[in-house]
Amino acid sequence: MMRLNPILSQKIIKTLLWILTGSTIGILFFIIIYIFIKGLPQLSWTFLSTNPVDMGRSGGILATIVSTVYLIGIALFFATPLGLGTAIYLTEYTREGLITKIIRFGTESLAGIPSIILGLFGFAIFVIAFGWGWSLLSGGLTLSAMLLPTIIRTSEESILSVPQEYREVAFSLGVGKWKTITRVVLPAALPGIVTGIVLSIARSVGETAVIIFTAGSSLRFPSSIFESGRTLAVHFYILAREGISMPMAYGTAAILVLLILIINISAYMTMRFLMKRYS
């Protein structure tokens, strides 16, 4: 076998790795630029501030933005306390044992369920059994089940990374367990918890399968959480798949991409800010 000069082989490996990294970033930029080139020209104030007309062939996307916000708001309203509570219970109130194993197995399994199956579940329970029909409430609740594993896991990790010493000092100062958690542990764990929540928002923005099944796809401006609503991602999907209007589809896609970028950047900035504040 031919033996390569080590310096040369180092160089080859480096170049290869560079190409691989470069193409990952390249693909990301290609997608973003492609969407922006096609989509940005569609954007205008009217596009953002008026409701869709004629199935979305003309008009704007206001109703879909509002539905998206509602849906995410509802999902977080349920998933955040439940997820954070579970994480606190798992880390501070139990010892590793059968119960924690069951809870962990449960959340891992929940994380592994394809979103379309979750959608079906939400349809069967909230839409049919509870009789809420296709509604933002049904959609938000189903979405919260999808976000729960992420929120639990990131919160758990951040809580565990808070030095044990803080709990000990608090104890030595006569601080009870619950106060230690709320006044010492959670503030120190906040950057990680918030980042987890914000990233889960980014994930819900792009979700479609779950939402079509549970929140439906009505294009009307939602006036309550018991009405059906169409999110940005669902709107994009329907516009493109049914061939209703490609320019409108790209316009919606550009907003979606922008939104996800903004959310990711703000997650990063929040984390930086909170880390500075608390360390």
Partner: peptide
């Protein structure tokens, strides 16, 4: 609580809170 207010403890490693 009263006991621990009365009897404070200083640890090996300085451990101020991140405040």
């Amino acid at each position: 609580i009263q006991l621990r207010k009365e009897v404070g403890m200083v640890f090996q490693r300085p451990n101020p809170f991140p405040l």
